[in-house]
Computed example of a mutant assay.
Amino acid sequence: MYELHTDRLVLRGWRESDLGPWAAMNADPAVREYLPGVLTREQSEASAARFQADLDGRGWGWWAVEVGATGEFIGFTGLDPVDDGMPFNGVEAGWRLARSASGHGYASEGARAAVAFGFQRLGLAEILAVTAATNLRSQAVMRRIGMTRDPADDFDDPGVPDGPLRRSVVYRLRAEDQRPVRRQAPSRPYPTQGA
Rank of each mutant, 00 (worst) to 15 (best):
P81Q: 12
R96G: 00
W60D: 10
D153Q: 07
A69P: 07
A98Y: 04
M142P: 05
A49M: 10
A133Q: 11
A185R: 15
S168H: 01
A48K: 09
F73N: 10
A195R: 11
R172A: 14
R166N: 04
Q139D: 01
S44T: 02
A49L: 15
T131G: 03
R182S: 14
V160Y: 08
R96T: 00
V65A: 09
M142F: 09
M1V: 07
E3D: 07
R149A: 03
E72H: 08
A129W: 04
R183P: 14
V141H: 00
R144Q: 13
F119D: 00
P164D: 03
R58I: 09
R15L: 11
E33I: 03
D7S: 15
Y34P: 01
L4S: 14
P158V: 13
D162W: 00
V169G: 03
V169C: 13
R143M: 13
D154S: 02
Y2V: 12
G163R: 11
R58T: 10
G159K: 00
L35Q: 06
P189C: 04
S100M: 09
A132K: 06
T70D: 01
G110Q: 10
F88D: 11
R172F: 12
R144C: 08
A114L: 02
V31F: 07
R143F: 10
H5M: 12
L11M: 08
P87Y: 06
G103I: 07
A53R: 14
E45H: 15
